[in-house]
Design a protein around this nucleic acid. Sequence first.
DNA 1: CGATAGTTCGAAACCGATTTAGAATAAAAG
DNA 2: CTTTTATTCTAAATCGGTTTCGAACTATCG
Lengths: 335, 335
Amino acid sequence: MRVITIKDISKKCGVSPATVSKALNGYGDISEATRELIQKTAQEMHYLPNAAARQLKTNTSHNIGIVYVDQTGSGLAHEYFSGVIDSAKEEAEKSGYDITFISSSIGYGSYVEHCRYRKCDGVLIVSDDFMSRQVQELVNSEIPTVIIDYIFDGHSSVLSKNVDGSYALTKYLIGKGHRKIAFIHGETTSVTSKRLSGFYNACSEEGIKIPEDYMIEARYHDPSASAEATRKLMMLRTPPTAIMYPDDYSYLGGMMELERLNLSIPEDVSVVGFDGIHLSQVLRPKLTTYYQDAPKIGKISAKKLIHTIEHKKTSVAEELEIPGKLLIGGSVAQI
Amino acid sequence: MRVITIKDISKKCGVSPATVSKALNGYGDISEATRELIQKTAQEMHYLPNAAARQLKTNTSHNIGIVYVDQTGSGLAHEYFSGVIDSAKEEAEKSGYDITFISSSIGYGSYVEHCRYRKCDGVLIVSDDFMSRQVQELVNSEIPTVIIDYIFDGHSSVLSKNVDGSYALTKYLIGKGHRKIAFIHGETTSVTSKRLSGFYNACSEEGIKIPEDYMIEARYHDPSASAEATRKLMMLRTPPTAIMYPDDYSYLGGMMELERLNLSIPEDVSVVGFDGIHLSQVLRPKLTTYYQDAPKIGKISAKKLIHTIEHKKTSVAEELEIPGKLLIGGSVAQI
DNA sequence: CGATAGTTCGAAACCGATTTAGAATAAAAG
DNA sequence: CTTTTATTCTAAATCGGTTTCGAACTATCG
């Protein structure tokens, strides 16, 4: 049998299509009796609204785009981002929104155009590269956006309590007796500057002065960049006794490099990460790191985005900070 | 300014909307001159077709659904599945297909209904649970499907060369002198039976008889199931010298359990996994495992699905086997 | 009882494209 | 110069809903 449309129901019920539409969409000017009849009939006939028709007329798709750009090319394999996306998806679905990936812009001029073509009601931006023209253009477009792990003025962001996280890690290291602490930090972004200030706060509280060559920039999620930074650090006249990595994934590069240099963790050098992905907890020694609550971040950002979509006028931009947790492993030695 | 429609272009060019549509879609009955004019104008005006309108009329969405069910609840965090999905996405986008997640059926009766509502031209099924009614229903629907890691009669599947993989692993163990090999294998599925036959082939070639209690079923991607199985195995009067795990992720459970039992790898017991996810290669010792070419699997399945969609009548169901690779780590001892 | 208000419903326009069937014109043939 | 054929274009229907505005009817009120 053909696909059931609103017209089929209207015939069966002896009412007009307009009435059916209203009955199904909870309009007030339909009597209880006909509403029930129509709903029952729709059920019986396995009626399924036509998303395209609805979208065409209402100009909303109940679709959320996810822009996920991963410069390092490891795809969805980043556990942290995967976690965020996955839980955002779940949350969105609860409100009847589906997820469409806007990762690529092939065939369209840009992300914005891709979103417009698919009429995404809103977009979640999870990216490694917020500086790209395409992302900028998207953020400045008419499409509601929520941004993960980055701050754009006048837009809502969701991120971890980065200051706290990095502060906690630093404090922990200091508590273990470390004074010569190196920080391999990510490229300059709003997140990085927060982590830096957490770091400096902790240091200055303890009266510790960090030499300049202990601070090295290395791209997030890029093990080889962190490997190189690690090498540089350990080559210094006075190498650090502890290294903070931009993230757990990057730490893998450091780990390998230390292996190559025949240095063992934590005997020769202590390390901490950031993210608390599953991976970090199965390494030996277990990595001491700051857990970012990816599920919560995803959930909150979906909620915020949907709220923004559905209350365009009243909704205001917010910067939402989600608490994480210090995970203590065995990667830091007492000295 | 408003969104540009085909009508705006038609006005500007002094032709009918019909002509514009045809010019833009490569119909033959349009003169070169007008076609060029129209295309240029469309460019200039930043025309973007309305996906909904097109979909409504043509009844195709250029949208591919991905059903990803993850019973274990770890979401997209499974690196293998993430890899498959990610590369399928990339491939699909090359052909102008977008990806919509059909993971949930909340708000719809079922996956099929969800797909029908969004008018997915086809569906990629990546699941932990192919026995579920919903998946069955979807596979038996009118919607073209390609299935990852499972075989449904009359449908296309893409999977690794499981027989070879498990054969290679077993052979490797035997080559290292192992005779007492236990196999913690996944639940009964087409994939599992292939892996079992690869295993038995290798064993019988070498004249090795595996006792029944060396064969334990444990759910795929369930570390705790594998942990329990590991415990059982090591409690046997004559425990195995080597254990094969259903997959790398499950191995983590085994790893922890062996740690708890104070057994070291590979000195006390040798282990191998299956999947070759990144994780397995940063563990120490590095896990010996069979790498499944997730990117290739994703790519091929997207290709096959799109081909099926675009050549419904001529396309035939295929079972595509993608070769993987034995990754030799340090988790197997010579005895 | 006529006027007014309130309920319930339907006609019709509309969203933006695609596509069929045929019109108009030009070119070729007789 | 008429007829045929090819070429290029358009009118109009259509996809399946939503929504406005008014019609029809019933109930309420003075």
